[in-house]
Simulated assay, not measured.
Amino acid sequence: MESLFVSTLVVAIAEIGDKTQLLAIILATRFKKPVPIIFGILVATLANHALAATAGYWVADLLNGQWFKWAIALSFIAMAAWALIPDKADDEDGSAVGRYGVFLTTTIAFFLVEMGDKTQIATVALGAKFHSIFWVAAGTTLGMMLANIPAVYLGEAATKIVPLKYVRIGAALIFLALGIWAVVEAASLFR
């Protein structure tokens, strides 16, 4: 259950102000159909994060060893630095739905935009750390939904509730704490 809780917390905080959350706001203000947008986010996140957690699980199996523990620790510390960098929605213009509809447009857009995103990379690292595909994917998906459902319903107002600067600092501190925790675990293997 620790993996579920940590995964949910890390991604829920890291997602605030992230480009996928900005995409949720853009889609919500453009299409004004929250239910298909929310279901599209859910399906895309389940698929993307299940793949990411699986990748982390496999990488941990293939590269099990002391140096890999250090790599995981350093990846969390790098994520802390990355969390401080603001995301922009410059690439997302909220273009027309076309023939795919709101649900499919959201699903495809979210899946693609999440590729290489900090929450996806965090999911890979969490999958490797906790060696659990199901609980990590469930937790990171829950975290994405906790951050994005309010964004869909509140639109642009969601980004004004708490200044994103402080949210990014909070996310960075969580990633840093996970990195330090992983460093302590890696260092304890030297004994």
Rank of each mutant, 00 (worst) to 15 (best):
L112M: 13
T45P: 08
Q120Y: 01
A171G: 15
E185I: 04
A125R: 00
M79K: 09
A81H: 08
W67A: 14
T159N: 12
E185H: 05
I41S: 08
A138R: 04
M144S: 11
E185Y: 03
P34K: 06
K33R: 15
A12L: 12
A172L: 11
K88Q: 15
I37R: 02
A52W: 03
I77E: 06
L104S: 15
I26V: 11
I85Y: 13
T141D: 04
L112E: 11
Q21K: 05
Y100S: 15
P34I: 03
L142K: 09
H49S: 04
M115V: 15
G40Y: 10
V162E: 09
L154P: 10
D18S: 10
V35N: 13
A177L: 13
G116T: 09
Q21P: 03
R30T: 13
A73G: 00
T107H: 07
F5I: 12
M115I: 15
L74H: 04
L84R: 08
F111K: 09
Q21S: 04
T123F: 01
S3I: 02
S3G: 06
V184K: 14
S3E: 12
L189S: 01
E2Y: 10
A171V: 09
T54Q: 05
W70C: 00
I174Y: 05
K118S: 10
K88G: 15
F130A: 00
